[in-house]
Design a protein around this nucleic acid. Structure first.
Length: 171
DNA sequence: CCCTGATTCGC
DNA sequence: GCGAATCAGG
């Protein structure tokens, strides 16, 4: 089996462009972990879910491979992937100093640490909203319960769907 | 309406 | 090879 991707790998993948080895490896891991195409796209960044699907398909790891051959998408509550992971496998040690200048304007940083998730802790049913700079050590994902079938919690979904305030780029 | 993956097809 | 548009579906 392939080991789960590490935060370091995701960070690298997000930084790189095109389908680099790293990006493909991360994508493969995420996909095999049962993460949906749109979620993979969100995590990788700079790609759409279509791109992810195409890549995944072409890469051969598509097909009813991974966790669910023909699961229940969207509606209906269904067991998606292994919930396991009773406790966090995160480095609890000497908390990485977080003496950030802190522009205390963003509520994202008010998200309780108990809720935050690192990539390794991410599951398909928790909010994947990225907070902070992926290159920073204190980067994390929201972790709140995601909307039904969605990649984000209701709050972040709203923000995702409403990119900018004030005015929209006319259609 | 929300979402899912699969496929097509022009680049 | 890539991915937007489209298709087919829960």
């Amino acid at each position: 089996m392939n080991r789960p991707v590490t935060d370091t790998e995701l960070t690298r993948a997000q930084k790189e462009s095109g389908w680099s080895e790293t990006r493909v490896r991360v994508l493969t891991s995420l996909w095999n972990a049962g993460i949906s195409a749109s979620e993979c796209a969100s995590l990788l960044g700079s790609v759409t879910r279509n791109a992810v699907i195409s890549k995944v398909t072409r890469a051969g790891l598509a097909a009813p491979g991974r966790v669910h051959p023909k699961p229940c998408n969207g509606h209906a509550a269904c067991p998606r992937e292994k919930p396991a992971r009773t406790s966090r496998a995160r480095t609890p040690g000497p908390a990485p100093k977080r003496d950030e200048p802190l522009p205390p304007k963003i509520d994202d940083f008010a998200i309780p640490a108990s809720q935050r998730r690192s990539l390794v802790q991410l599951t398909a049913d928790c909010c994947h909203w990225p907070v902070g700079d992926p290159l920073e050590p204190d980067f994390f994902f929201c972790g709140a319960p995601a909307r039904q079938g969605g990649p984000y919690c209701s709050g972040h979904h709203a923000r995702a769907v409403e990119p900018r305030t004030g005015r929209r780029p006319i259609p």
